[in-house]
Design a protein around this nucleic acid. Structure first.
Lengths: 236, 236
DNA sequence: TCTACTAAAGGTCATGTTGACTTTAACCGG
DNA sequence: CCGGTTAAAGTCAACATGACCTTTAGTAGA
């Protein structure tokens, strides 16, 4: 019988982990938090932060806990969403390990504090992490690739881009998020028109930010809207 | 490395299953394949088809296998994609069971053949399955709700709607897919313009289908395009 | 055969959004 | 005061959309 709803649990040894792709923007580059593994397998290699789901713990709860442990940040203040699960039988040499990948976004986050597992943690530009010469552990390259594509798509239909900006922010700050993640240049004027005319995306604080050069930019905060309608499409 | 067992896996009893939300359109209603559970827990209740992931089996492979077992259909000819994973600690009274939900779409599929576990399988309108008076097993109501929303969103940005139509199909057939899944009426003329002018969505076969009444409709086949650009948005 | 009915297919037109581009505003340093 | 710089706002054509109308091509019935 294929659907053994009565079979004793578990059918075979399975472990479940969560891995988190934490994105931020540093120095105009999309960056991901990678740790250096301190144990076998893949000792010394870079990997996504993550860990085992604990008994009595929800998947989202495990992701939140790992996020706090790795970055010291309260995940409830960040955008955190499930990406997808990965379960190839040979993805972990130790045995059958299925991982649930999460995507987290935040404004220019502090360098993770040393301690616990985050000792070897560092922000790495995504371009570097996905370079053919860069080795990632397990199937983390595929996970990271999927996460980048998800983030790019999310910018089109949602307001998550604001999650990359520390408030208050300027329209140019927000535009740079799109430009960095999409890897294209956007027309500043058209971008402003779109963003300011979309109800609930940004709302002005009334303040201005003195710039190094040029006219001072008006400051905004996030407006609370979740979806972006109509979407802000990448030019096909 | 021959120290592959160095880090003992913090194992507690975990099982991993795949559950499949199989959608089709029958009698102008979005319908989902539900089985009647023959065993505890939830004996006699409706549930999504699914089963345990086997050793040596990929998640996608498990979903494909379950799809074949439940419907007798080759999943490679259907649209099949991972939806998301569900892992609340108490979602299964037997113990810790984490499930990876999949979404499958197909044209008006045959009633599942009796035999194996599909004996109690039946197509159920989604409206009925999500009715407060209808009881679904485990967290399958939440999974189904998420699947419906995913399907609705997919119609906007992709060409999966064609996957609900048996070829060759008419523009009206395709339009009915949108109307049924979105639950709105679309302007036939504007819909045709959009669909036929989107490169790769549909291509004419040159044939016509005699109708019960009215002018015979031209027949089309799927054009092979995956994404729909610009998207066909639900009117906000 | 003629007429009514039906649905497909195609056309019109006003509206709104987008992309490319220009102009004005506000601040800097020298 | 002037040139440089960036923000902000405006212009305009191209395009996509929604609402609506007309024509086409078939069936059923008198």
């Amino acid at each position: 019988m294929n659907r053994s709803v009565e079979a004793p649990l578990p059918r075979f040894p399975v472990s479940v982990t969560v891995d988190i792709v934490i994105f931020t923007i540093r120095d105009d580059e999309l960056s991901v938090l990678l740790i250096e593994r301190g144990k076998e397998p893949h000792l010394g290699r870079s990997a996504l932060p993550g860990g085992y789901v604990r008994p009595g713990e929800d998947l989202d709860g495990a992701a939140l806990r790992e996020l706090v442990e790795e970055t010291g940040l309260d995940g409830r203040s960040l955008h955190l969403e499930q990406l997808r699960s990965y379960g190839a039988p040979d993805r972990d040499p130790r045995g059958r390990v299925i991982t649930v990948a999460y995507l987290a976004l935040g404004p220019d986050l502090p360098t993770p504090t040393a301690g616990t597992d985050a000792a070897g943690a560092a922000w790495t530009p995504v371009g570097k992490a996905l370079d053919p010469g860069f080795t990632l552990s397990f199937d983390h390259r595929a996970i990271l690739t999927d996460a980048v594509e998800r983030a790019r798509a999310q910018l089109e239909y949602t307001t998550v881009a604001a999650g990359f900006c520390r408030e208050p922010f300027t329209i140019s700050d927000l535009r740079r998020v799109y430009e960095v993640i999409w890897g294209v240049a956007l027309d500043p004027s058209n971008f402003r028109r779109k963003v300011t005319k979309t109800a609930g995306f940004v709302e002005p604080t009334g303040e201005r930010r003195a710039a190094e050069a040029g006219r001072p930019a008006a400051l905004y905060r996030f407006g609370g809207a979740r979806v972006l309608y109509p979407p802000l499409l990448r030019t096909g």
